[in-house]
């Protein structure tokens, strides 16, 4: 078919129907919202400079990086370091352990601070309430080395738990030398240290609920329990949903510090995670490229998870990250 040249402009307009709309939309948007955009400017600048300025560092994962040659000057290595990780006989076990610990942590250490906050919310005595809050948030500040030291002592064969087993007529054993207890120990200690701290944000969200809603519920004849279900929880739902999305998006990341303070070769089966493996490898030979490649793999998985979680949440609760 021949194109009639006289109709060129018309053609363009029909080929790019959005183009002019788009421009006018931006102009309109700017005209209407420029004070708001001005307020957003510091945030945007922050992310552009400190977030996206150094982001080219990601390519270290695909390079044979040596500090002297720099990031751009080092020779390319392709997927060599990804291959190196995935061909390790332990790759599957490392990924499984990382995900499982995070999963159980999500199942227990996520909802319990919410429940704790709800229980605390029911306390009418302000002094008691504040005291409980202050005390429970303290363990968060105790350094990991000390907390893990206490855990190792507690779980030893002659530790508190061992003595307890003996009193109950069992044979005491060292819990950290049996792979099947590691995840429990990890999650429980995490809860122990973070219950109060993690509940703070929910306590704050609870104060934002309009008291008139409770009055209305009471008028409708709702008991305490129903008030919680129909007023309190919906009131803090946006916070819960967003934090849950963020949690799901970190299923592949688990810091090595706590793991290496608690584990030993006997329980590598459940305790050795991606980061502790990279750490052990780094002791022998520090390799930026390998560490970056593994980190990048984790990030990609996490990123996909967060997108999925966000989609689901947007459908179910109408709360969404973007």
């Amino acid at each position: 078919m021949k194109i009639n040249l006289s109709n060129k402009s018309q053609l363009q307009a029909s080929y790019f129907p959005l183009s002019s709309n788009w421009r006018s939309m931006i102009a309109k948007d700017w005209a209407k919202h420029w004070p708001l955009y001005l307020m957003l400017l510091p945030t945007v600048l922050y992310y552009l400079i400190w977030g996206y300025g150094p982001m080219y560092g990601i390519i270290i994962a695909f390079k044979e990086f040596t500090p002297r040659k720099g990031i751009l000057g080092s020779p390319w290595a392709g997927f060599k370091y990804f291959q190196e990780f995935f061909t390790s006989p332990f790759a599957f076990r490392l990924i499984r352990n990382t995900v499982m610990i995070n999963f159980w942590n999500l199942v227990f250490a996520f909802p319990l601070p919410i429940i704790f906050a709800l229980l605390l919310n029911e306390v009418k005595n302000t002094f008691y309430k504040r005291t409980v809050q202050t005390i429970t948030y303290m363990p968060y500040f105790v350094s990991l080395v000390v907390v893990c030291g206490i855990i190792v002592d507690f779980t030893a064969s002659d530790g508190v738990l061992g003595e307890l087993t003996k009193m109950l007529g069992g044979a005491p054993k060292n819990l950290l030398s049996d792979p099947k207890y590691f995840r429990t120990i990890y999650v429980v200690s995490e809860l122990w240290q973070r219950l109060g701290w993690d509940s703070i944000i929910f306590l704050a969200a609870l104060t934002g609920i309009n008291p008139e809603l409770y009055d209305a519920a009471i008028v409708d004849g709702a008991g305490k329990f129903k008030q919680v279900i129909y007023v309190t929880i919906p009131g803090i739902m946006p916070t819960i949903a967003i934090l849950l999305i963020l949690r799901v998006g970190s299923l592949m990341s688990l810091g090595f510090e706590k793991v290496i303070l608690l584990y030993n070769p006997l329980i590598y089966e459940t305790a050795d995670v991606i980061s502790s493996y990279v750490y052990r490898k780094g002791i022998v030979e520090s390799n930026f490229s390998f560490a970056t490649a593994v980190g990048l793999f984790n990030s990609v998985v996490n990123f996909i998870l967060v997108i999925l979680a966000n989609k689901i949440s947007a459908k179910m609760t109408e709360v969404s990250l973007w």
């Binding site: 070769p265 006997l266 590598y268 052990r280 030979e285």
Partner: peptide
């Protein structure tokens, strides 16, 4: 050599540490 050696040995040492303890216990 050093890179190849270390790559092999990180995994082997992980395995040997684990199995030695399991054998002994």
């Amino acid at each position: 050599e050093s890179t190849e050696f270390n790559n092999i040995m990180v995994d082997i040492r992980t395995y040997v540490d684990e199995m030695t303890l399991k054998f002994i216990m």
